[in-house]
Design a protein around this nucleic acid. Sequence first.
DNA 1: CAGTGGTCTAGACCACACT
DNA 2: GTGTGGTCTAGACCACTGC
Lengths: 262, 262
Amino acid sequence: MNHTLPQTEAPAAAAADSPATAPAFSPLYQQIKGLILQSLQASEWKPGESIPSEMELASRYRVSQGTVRKAIDELASGHLLIRKQGKGTFVATHAEHQVQYRFLKLVPDQGDLNTEGPAQREIVDCKRLRASAEIARALALRSGDTVVQVRRVLSFANIPTILEDLWLPGTAFKGLSAERLADYHGPMYALFETEFGVRMVRAEEKIRAVLPDKAQRELLKLPPSTPLLSVERVAYTYNDTPMELRRGFYRTDTHHYRNDLN
Amino acid sequence: MNHTLPQTEAPAAAAADSPATAPAFSPLYQQIKGLILQSLQASEWKPGESIPSEMELASRYRVSQGTVRKAIDELASGHLLIRKQGKGTFVATHAEHQVQYRFLKLVPDQGDLNTEGPAQREIVDCKRLRASAEIARALALRSGDTVVQVRRVLSFANIPTILEDLWLPGTAFKGLSAERLADYHGPMYALFETEFGVRMVRAEEKIRAVLPDKAQRELLKLPPSTPLLSVERVAYTYNDTPMELRRGFYRTDTHHYRNDLN
DNA sequence: CAGTGGTCTAGACCACACT
DNA sequence: GTGTGGTCTAGACCACTGC
């Protein structure tokens, strides 16, 4: 017998001529993981809050503590939850100092982000417009749908270092404006959580070396023919829904993009 | 009582005026993990081979299967071991098709590495010389120590795409030559394993956008003022010993560096 | 079939944080 | 002390591989 919960029955592939890639046995802890994920999506527990204790979840789902534990372990290793011994398990948030700028891999050549102090932010532009085909595809929208477009410059030690263009689905980010962005102190992804209930969980980046156009060169006050790192990022919420397309241009004469390979 | 093995006793900080950062409690499974790591370093089990079963290790170390399991889990998540249900647990290797080019994050804009087929390799240069201060520092050598320097070009679909310079400690890579490199078919890291007993476990990369010099431009047959991605990698063996410094220059007009953020 | 890793359970105890 | 997550154990059973 396959230990089961009410279990979302395996979607017994209707068509028979497809290779039918196995009945897919799903361990109990994966099912529990799915249930916890549903609660996270439904905002039953909000970012920063604690979720019920392992014992409580175990009795709620009628499984042993060890099974809940393994489910939580996987969610924690994906940075969706954060375990704190003696205190509880918490919904991860981009607002915590430890994990702030988790997705920003640009670091100064000397020292680190702490020695450098916080970035100065300048919102250059923030407007609503219709999605181009390319942007619509990246955000899983229909082209012509409304998107919010933001352009901003980040400076470190008063040296403009990052120019970013970003696009957000218009419906999910209804009240977003340049003022709102300028007034908020803290990571942009933290604002997205508190103001719009959108939590970014993972992202994919495509990195290239490019030469900036005139507008970009002026915004970053660059000497001529300085190459830039182009970092195109798509960020996803819980159900792998893309919620942000971001194109960053990084100066790499004083900073570098740092990546650890395992 | 702290479950202990013969246990490498906590190094009871000799000086008393240092802040003494806690006695450091080490769980049993971490100690087991350390023992397994030692066996890997000592090449008791070689890349590609299977290690003893969980039950066997459990009785060898006098702990329960669950404890061994947790130790192996961590090593497997670090890609040091590979678990195969029903078959056993194996020492990871760079020779397997699944994980070949694990550290190469450059992918074609369209399709993937499979559609593109294998890279053509050309060894431009391979010689022994004395380490500069910079290279010595990266490889934890003394400047003046002998290093092997290799320069090669990788082409995809007959388009030169990657130019790489790399430096290796001379002592560990004694018999390495241009012929040896040219004759070997397969990932360079696989050759390092079989011929020199050096297995790369993790790496750190620093990425920048740069303009190539004349020599680089010619080797890659580039049109003028094409910016390149500069990827500086330090690769480490088991005990966090740096064993390779590699500086790659990537064309990013047909390919891009892909990175997944979690 | 036997052997391997994978899942699940139940219970004991430890380390840590708060009060 | 109480409650939380973290470790360890012992045993049962499942899923996969290969003989």
